[in-house]
Design a binder for these strands. Structure first.
Lengths: 140, 140
DNA sequence: TATTTTTGCTTGCATATTGCAAGTGCAAAC
DNA sequence: GTTTGCACTTGCAATATGCAAGCAAAAATA
């Protein structure tokens, strides 16, 4: 899509360029915490992403090696999207965003519970969750 | 600008909606680490933001209470932009983004040094830097 | 076996956002 | 009193978005 866009040397900038808008990060979040893994899953998500934007973001995420497209075990009509290690490494960022959001916004109860658990022991939560996500990569 | 845009309940989404694109976060980062505080500072930044976009982002950041406009002590022609506590609370997110970028991108040497220091003792770095930024708010 | 449904997209098009260049108004310097 | 610096605004072409509709392959259903 925006392949030839200039990328500055600033690490935040070059990392944020990968995401472009909020949708890419939301897709990754949904894969991490909401067990979504197909096109339909993302489309049905509460966030309400448009189908052409979803297609574009999935393509960009794949190009940037944050997700992989695999054959779905249930059906050839389906595509299974999986996180890469590079994406799993985003977990600390996502956790911190949740903490910040929790402090400055109204958060629905169920997510608040997850945040509370993560807050109890942040490092342990990140370690455990990372291990679980990694297991999903290596098995299957 | 995009005032009436629907905001979902997802904490990542509602937080990321504040930023919209990378520019808002880059402005905050430049205020935190590059000591930038005026319109001209941001415009001259290496990132190369367009002037109308800068104006739009500064307005949105102010509306979302992440920055404040103050009189510049040197001149009435200048405007002094300052971080709020809400923005300072973003520091852990920004630090984690740098860690991630450091792992997956080429980072210029000077920034790499800062990241290295932060990595030595993350919690201490965040605590110290937060204290410094808070001092900039309260004095003056 | 024929038909309908599901799935993962693509296409068209009106609208919104961006990036660039130029301009404006006020304050300060000369 | 004229020029320069600063913080924006404005106009406009190019790009990106959001919505609805379409589409081919696979799976489910009749």
């Amino acid at each position: 899509m925006e392949k030839d866009k200039k990328r500055s040397d600033c690490p935040i900038s070059c990392s944020l360029d990968i995401f472009g808008d909020k949708w890419s990060l939301l897709i990754i979040r949904d894969m991490m915490f909401a067990n979504k893994s197909t096109y339909g899953d993302f489309l049905k998500s509460a966030e309400g992403i448009a189908t052409n934007i979803l297609a574009s973001r999935l393509q960009s995420l794949e190009e940037n090696k944050l997700i992989e497209k695999l054959e779905h075990p249930d059906s050839k009509a389906k595509v299974l999207y999986k996180l890469t290690q590079k994406a799993i490494d985003l977990l600390p960022i996502i956790v911190e965003i949740h903490f910040w959001a929790d402090k400055h916004f109204e958060i629905p109860a169920d997510i608040k519970a997850m945040i509370k658990e993560a807050k109890r022991d942040k490092d342990e939560f990140i370690k455990t969750t990372t291990r679980q996500l990694k297991k999903q990569i290596t098995t299957q």
